[in-house]
Amino acid sequence: MVSWGFAVLFVLVLVAWYLSYSAARLDRLHVRLSGTLAALDAQLVRRAEASVELANSGLLDGATALILADAAAQSLEAPHEAGEQRELVESDLTEALDVSLTDEVAASLHRSGPLGEEYLARLASACTRVQLARRFHNDAVTDVRRVRRKWVVRAFHLAGHTPVPVTVEFNDECPDHLGV
């Protein structure tokens, strides 16, 4: 009789340990997700600031500078939480960068000297970092969603009332003329 009691106790301890382990893992993934979202937001702000600096540098013609400055300002003013509005604004900035930085504009910035090249390098770096941050964030979302689909997580409500995360989708391609 005693051996049955130990067996039941062992199974209960094992189940409790597994539930605790699963909950802690899910919590770590959610913390990672928060970090990747904050990193993505920081890189989006960095890209927008680099775009504003280039637009205000005086190295672009007036119309190009206005298009770029407007799209960058919209990006800086957009709500910082992920959502459809933010994705549209960031795609608009990417499109403005692509339209503004043509072959001729990039060549004239390179010819303008070290200052023009510095603006292009800063913008290229910011664009690359946005791509990486978005990929890292979307990978974290995929990991969280994969764990949340497990029957143990669903059956014991280990995710609580935390909303299911969604990937961030927008055009983040670097303009061809940045030399990235």
Rank of each mutant, 00 (worst) to 15 (best):
A23N: 09
L37S: 01
L12P: 00
D27E: 13
A16N: 06
Y18A: 11
F10H: 05
V11C: 11
S34G: 13
V11H: 04
F6I: 15
A24N: 13
L29P: 00
A23G: 08
V31F: 03
L26Q: 01
S22V: 10
R25C: 02
L26Y: 02
F6H: 09
A39P: 01
Y18F: 12
S22H: 03
A7D: 04
V31W: 01
R28V: 00
L37N: 01
W17K: 08
A16Q: 10
R28S: 03
A39M: 09
F10Y: 10
L12R: 05
F10R: 01
A24F: 10
G35E: 14
T36A: 07
L37E: 02
R28F: 00
V31T: 11
L37F: 02
S34P: 00
L9Q: 10
H30M: 08
L26H: 01
Y18W: 15
D27A: 06
H30T: 05
A38I: 07
R25W: 06
F6N: 11
V8Q: 13
G35F: 06
S20W: 12
G35V: 09
L12D: 10
Y18C: 07
V11I: 15
V8R: 08
L33N: 02
V15P: 01
V8H: 13
G35R: 09
A16P: 06
A7W: 05
L9F: 15
V15G: 05
W17C: 12
R25A: 08
F6D: 11
L19E: 00
A24P: 02
L12Y: 08
R25G: 02
L9V: 14
